[in-house]
Design a protein around this nucleic acid. Sequence first.
DNA 1: CAGGCATATACGTGTCTAGGAATATTGACG
DNA 2: CGTCAATATTCCTAGACACGTATATGCCTG
Lengths: 112, 112
Amino acid sequence: MPTDTFAVLAEPTRRLILDQLCTSDSSVGDLVDALDVSQPTMSKHLKVLREAGFVSCRVDAQRRIYRVEAPPFERLDEWLEPYRRLWARHLDALERHLDRQDHAHDDSQEQR
Amino acid sequence: MPTDTFAVLAEPTRRLILDQLCTSDSSVGDLVDALDVSQPTMSKHLKVLREAGFVSCRVDAQRRIYRVEAPPFERLDEWLEPYRRLWARHLDALERHLDRQDHAHDDSQEQR
DNA sequence: CAGGCATATACGTGTCTAGGAATATTGACG
DNA sequence: CGTCAATATTCCTAGACACGTATATGCCTG
């Protein structure tokens, strides 16, 4: 995982850009219109996203059509992996909690 | 998803802290020893992580034992969801690529 | 090839933040 | 209550970065 993957995503505008591109490939102008961002700012964000591999672009006459790319997201997914055991812990705790409630319920309804 | 979740993770040291806490709950001093970070810096990072919900701490005499918490990671996992269709696209493209290779192979071996 | 559109880059500026040094807080314990 | 240990907080500074304005590049069309 490149160290700056998260730094790239830390920018709210860049997340909006990715969100938008997730819907459909777009030119720079499209993105400028869709999100309320100046054109130079947009180009700069796109450059950052491009260099981090989040997007690629193809040339269409004077326009550049940007498109979101999978690999950085896959790396993020992998990074998340060791933390998924926390889910399990979470669920275990929930289960134990519900168990306790069940037992309490037993106590109130049945003799032991 | 709080807007600063990614900003919190953008700091390499904080990711190391989470990595360490993923292994075992630790006191501030343990973390200072494990990662090579000054105590004040460690406390500051832990505060950021705490306020973002990534860790919690319990008091043990003069020490605070920190522990990693699931919810922010779960939110991250959910955020990733819309991008998972990119995996599929990826695999589709790979399939088509292999298909083309197969067809090329067919061409060279069979008459159509 | 001139002029215009789409995009990229350069530069200056204000803001945010990580880290170091010093200090404050809190709890344990004689 | 004084002292020590563990942690938190404050203040300061240096670096990074997002944005706006201005300008450059590249490509199309008459």
